[in-house]
């Protein structure tokens, strides 16, 4: 029952209240800001699965996001595929690339993995930038068709909003189930002590690869959404600094926390928009917020919590820890 209430509050907020408020404050621009926040929420939630839950710090997430975006853009412009095909294909292609690229680095731990993913992310960026015949290089790909379905809805800011919102909710659902379940416990065991996890019968490499694959899938879908909603992508959108932005969102919101990921995206993308004078100093704000949250809030704003528990807590439905041991699936 509580579960049902929390879910309906969440859906109501995302699907009715938020778009209502956005159109009330003047639509267009704010819808685009919210769409960007939505895309980055998906990215941060997905990166969180690798970094927060499985404990592998990834500094190359923007690269995988770029693979998804370019896959979508090329499929949509060259082959004229509709969005309901490009998005899942982008996800799958990115996941496959993610696995292939990350397979050799799975043995690495800690900073070595972090730096290896930095290398992978930059390899992807350099390739996008220089493989001019395929990606059009620094010119980028423009005139990517928006999200539309003949006879039902056409490309507009509101369509974009709903597409991003629905996919973000789906991502939260899938990633939430992966994180807040016994499977999530297995991933956390890998994070806490991989050797010990192996001696308890967990297939550590398998778990790492699976979490990487799921994370890359959603990064790819987020890239696809970005391509469809903005209509133009260039390699500059998928640089190292974007990986850092994603990392900062995760750190601020709380590593391993799905609502934290969304909150991080809202803070780091929303604040500069709302507080205009800060807008110019966006990356400085990102750096400063990241620095101070590592220093003062090592667990981030929300720690390792699930979406529903945050909603529940807000409505005073305090939850008894002992009743919630184990995962009801």
């Amino acid at each position: 029952m509580r579960r049902l209430i929390s879910i309906s509050i969440l859906l109501l907020a995302v699907l009715l209240v938020l778009p209502g408020v956005l159109s009330a404050v003047g639509g267009g621009y704010w819808f685009r800001v919210t769409t960007t926040i939505g895309v980055f929420s998906i990215l941060t939630m997905s990166a969180n699965l690798i970094t927060g839950t499985t404990g592998l710090m990834s500094l190359g997430h923007a690269g995988f996001y770029g693979i998804g975006a370019y896959t979508t853009a090329l499929l949509a412009t060259k082959l004229h595929w509709p969005f309901f095909l490009t998005l899942p294909v982008a996800g799958v292609v990115t996941a496959v690339f993610g696995i292939l690229l990350a397979l050799p680095t799975m043995r690495l731990i800690g900073i070595y993995f972090a730096v290896a993913t930095l290398g992978l992310g930059e390899i992807i960026h350099v390739t996008l930038l220089n493989w001019v015949d395929f990606t059009r290089g620094p010119m980028g790909i423009s005139a990517i068709p928006g999200i539309s379905l003949d006879g039902l809805f056409s490309a507009s800011d509101i369509t974009n909003y709903y597409a991003v919102a629905i996919i973000a909710l789906l991502a939260a659902l899938v990633l939430g189930r992966l994180t807040h379940s016994y499977y999530g416990n297995a991933l956390r065991a890998v994070r806490e002590d991989d050797q010990c996890a192996a001696s308890m019968g967990l297939n550590v490499v398998g778990l790492k690869i699976q979490s990487f694959a799921f994370a890359c899938f959603f990064a790819g879908v987020a890239g696809g959404l970005w391509a469809h909603t903005t209509g133009y992508i260039s390699p500059g959108d998928f640089r190292f600094s974007e990986s850092i932005l994603i990392l900062a969102m995760m750190v601020v919101g709380g590593l391993g926390s799905i609502p934290g990921a969304v909150l991080g995206a809202v803070i780091l993308l929303g604040l500069p928009e709302v507080l205009r004078p800060i807008g110019d100093y966006r990356m400085i704000v990102v750096g400063a917020v990241m620095f101070f949250s590592i220093l003062f809030l090592p667990r981030g704003l929300l720690g390792e919590t699930s979406v529903l528990s945050v909603v529940r807590r807000q409505f005073g439905l305090a939850w008894d820890r002992t009743l919630n041991l184990g995962w009801r699936q």
Binding site: R177, L178, S181, Y183, Q329
Partner: peptide
């Protein structure tokens, strides 16, 4: 988990 196996699809 080690004894019974862990599959992402069981969680999903």
């Amino acid at each position: 988990l080690g004894a019974l196996g862990h599959s992402p699809f069981a969680a999903l």
